[in-house]
Simulated assay, not measured.
Amino acid sequence: MDNGMIEPSYLRTMQSRLRRRVIFMVPKSPSTTPDGFHFNWGCCFTKSDNKKQLGYVFGSLHEEYLRDLTAKVSEIASIFQAERTLVMGYSMGGFGAFQLGSMAPDVFDVVVSVAGYGVGTLEPQGEMYDAPQPQAGERFEKFLQQVASRLSVVPVVLAMHSRKDSMSSFRDVNAIIRHVQEVSLKKGSENIVQLLEVPDEKADSDRGRKKKNKSGHHYFNYTLLDDTSDDFFWSKLQGFLRIAAPRLELQTVSFDSIARFGTSNTGKPVCAKCGPWWKARVEERDETSVRIPQSLWAGMSQRYSPY
């Protein structure tokens, strides 16, 4: 969200709205590299690519970064034996949620993009982003075919967006959701793919925003935190989770291959509450296993390899 921290109180509120025990992983979008690459999550671009803030149009997806991050998500989900794994983000984070979900669709049960976008755009030149056409449209179509199509494997794909949003294109997100729906239909998939449209009067409803700033992009509280979010989003998500199919088949691997995670330099678990649980799991490692997606083991870098 906004390329910075998310308040811990926001996470507590979202956990209470979800009404489940939740392990939050809150990564940061990568910093600029010494060789001059900037990142919007997995979308990397140079300074020249980003003229008029169009890095998201002319950048490219950094597969190594996305592979490593989704591998770490999978590792953490397996350690905690997560019943469900979700990726969620707002604005640039919504862009990132689409990227992560498509990079490793068998890792996630749910992809939620709020006020997000994709690579390229369908917006006409001279409007909204003033991105050059047809180049921007061609990049967007490529994004649909190579990235959005893979989201059809995820059991639940949701987007929340306002038509009045002038910072992230409703047109583009609507096209992404429609494309995922079409691919899902062709595959005979029973996944849930929906666009939840934010009412116009709520497009600038976030507290603390100046009235003159009418970008239509400020509905974080309405969709995720306020009491309105229960009916608009969280109750629907809970219902979807009750009926959605589980993630794809996972490979069983020895628990001791990832037992290093979560320990301090003393070898003890970082979280005291997990101490007895962790000790019992390690003692039972000859009989206990965790499940990691097969496709991720094939693509993991050496530092994640159990061998």
Rank of each mutant, 00 (worst) to 15 (best):
R207L: 14
N213R: 08
E138S: 13
T13W: 02
V22L: 12
M1L: 07
R281C: 15
M1F: 09
V173W: 00
M25D: 14
R303I: 12
Y222P: 05
I258W: 04
P155C: 07
D49S: 09
N50R: 04
A104Y: 00
M300P: 06
D204K: 09
R242V: 14
V193N: 04
G55Y: 00
P269Q: 13
A298I: 05
S289N: 07
V114P: 00
D165G: 10
L122R: 08
T33A: 15
R84S: 11
R247N: 03
L296G: 09
T266M: 05
S16M: 06
T252E: 12
M128V: 02
D49H: 07
A115D: 01
E83A: 07
R247C: 14
R21E: 11
I243T: 12
P155G: 14
G208I: 00
M25S: 13
F37R: 03
S189Q: 01
K236Q: 12
K164A: 15
F45A: 13
L296Y: 02
M160F: 01
E123M: 04
V110Y: 10
V119T: 13
S113K: 00
R21P: 00
F98D: 01
D165P: 00
H179T: 03
F233T: 02
L122A: 08
T85Y: 01
M1K: 06
R285S: 15
Q251L: 15
S168G: 09
S152R: 04
D227F: 10
I192L: 08
D256A: 11
V114W: 00
D227C: 12
N50M: 01
V87R: 04
P306I: 11
E75P: 00
K268T: 13
S9T: 15
E249P: 09
R291G: 11
Y222Q: 01
S9V: 15
Q15I: 05
S295R: 01
V73N: 06
E127A: 04
T252N: 06
S60A: 10
Q238Y: 03
Q294G: 11
S91C: 05
H161F: 06
P276Y: 02
T288W: 04
F140S: 09
G93V: 02
T85N: 04
Q135K: 07
D49I: 02
E182K: 00
R281E: 15
N221V: 10
S29M: 03
V154K: 00
V153K: 03
Q294M: 11
L225E: 09
V183F: 01
P27T: 11
K202L: 13
A115C: 06
P132G: 09
Y304W: 13
K72A: 09
Y56D: 10
V193M: 05
G126I: 10
G94V: 06
F58K: 05
D68Q: 10
K212P: 12
D35I: 00
M92P: 00
E83T: 08
F58I: 10
S305Y: 08
A131K: 04
L237T: 01
E182P: 03
T46M: 04
H218G: 09
K52L: 07
D172P: 10
N174S: 13
C271N: 15
I23R: 10
T32S: 07
S9R: 11
F108D: 01
Y117A: 12
G275R: 04
R207D: 14
V114I: 10
Q146S: 11
K210A: 14
S9F: 06
